[in-house]
Computed example of a mutant assay.
Amino acid sequence: MDPIQAIILALIQGLTEFLPISSSGHLILPQTLLGWQDQGLAFDVAVHIGSLVAVIGYFRRDVVSLLGNWSSSVIQRREVGDSRLAWLVILATMPAVLAGLLFNDVIEQHLRSAAVLATTTLVFGLLLGLGDYSRRENRTLTDIGIGIALLVGLAQAIALVPGTSRSGITITAALLLGLGRADAARFSFLLSMPIIAAAGCYKLLELLQSSGPVEWGNLALGFAVSALSAYLCIAAFMQWIERVGMMPFVIYRIVLAAVIVMVAMP
């Protein structure tokens, strides 16, 4: 991999990880159109860590508050500040963690085809449009209970299927369950932190067990580009979401599904 490839792939990762448009649907295109090889496990770890640093950096006040209140609630054995939301984030993360442990090999072997990517990109894009169009906005983050947290968590587990988009399906579920756009996006981003951390740790363990060469320059470049682009992407998304809504992303996903069919399917 040369530095230009590292920059392009890291930009794709950073810009698509948190937008509801499917990062895996985009990463297949350079491989197909330009004949690039898979970026490798080490590069995957670097860009995932970059994305994690970006989302933690943007929501740093929330992270500090949630961790502090959660720790206090454990020690004092009672609800403290935002500790309830912290516990709900943990609960909502469990379905995806369990699904990843149980079905990761099946997904890797059987669900990474262009046909699956095109189908999930289209179907879950249309569901995102439905969620945005039919949203009721009769709940806020303080109204989230165990049931809603588990349903959004189950939606996040489905996002293990390539092309679904983790942010897309969790925002869709939150909108359908009554949250407004900003709260749905914020809850989705809070959920992204433990799941990206878990995925990064899993990939890091695989990397430590492998014996392949490591291109440290490209890893550092990928980390930096992924972190910066993801941070700017989150900031723009949170500022524009109320005004823009989800329809531009729905239209984009429909076009992306068509492009995948045309260029990546025989």
Rank of each mutant, 00 (worst) to 15 (best):
Y133M: 12
S134Y: 15
R135L: 14
R136K: 12
R136Q: 13
E137H: 13
R139E: 09
R139L: 15
I144G: 11
I144Y: 11
G145R: 14
G145F: 13
L150D: 08
L151D: 09
G153W: 02
L154E: 02
Q156D: 07
I158V: 13
L160E: 07
V161M: 02
R166A: 03
S167Y: 05
G168N: 02
T172Q: 03
T172L: 05
L175T: 11
L177N: 03
L179K: 05
A182L: 15
A185G: 11
A185Y: 03
R186A: 05
R186S: 09
F187N: 09
S188H: 08
F189D: 07
S192P: 08
I195E: 04
A197H: 05
G200N: 00
K203N: 01
K203Q: 11
L204P: 09
E206H: 07
E206C: 04
L208R: 02
Q209S: 13
G212P: 01
V214G: 05
W216E: 12
G217D: 02
G217V: 00
A220W: 11
G222D: 00
A224C: 14
A227E: 10
L228H: 01
L228E: 01
L228M: 12
S229N: 06
A230H: 10
Y231C: 04
L232M: 06
I234F: 00
I234R: 00
F237N: 05
F237A: 11
Q239K: 15
I241G: 01
V244A: 09
G245D: 00
G245R: 06
M247H: 13
P248I: 07
F249D: 09
F249W: 07
V250N: 01
R253Q: 12
I254F: 10
L256M: 13
A257M: 04
V261S: 08
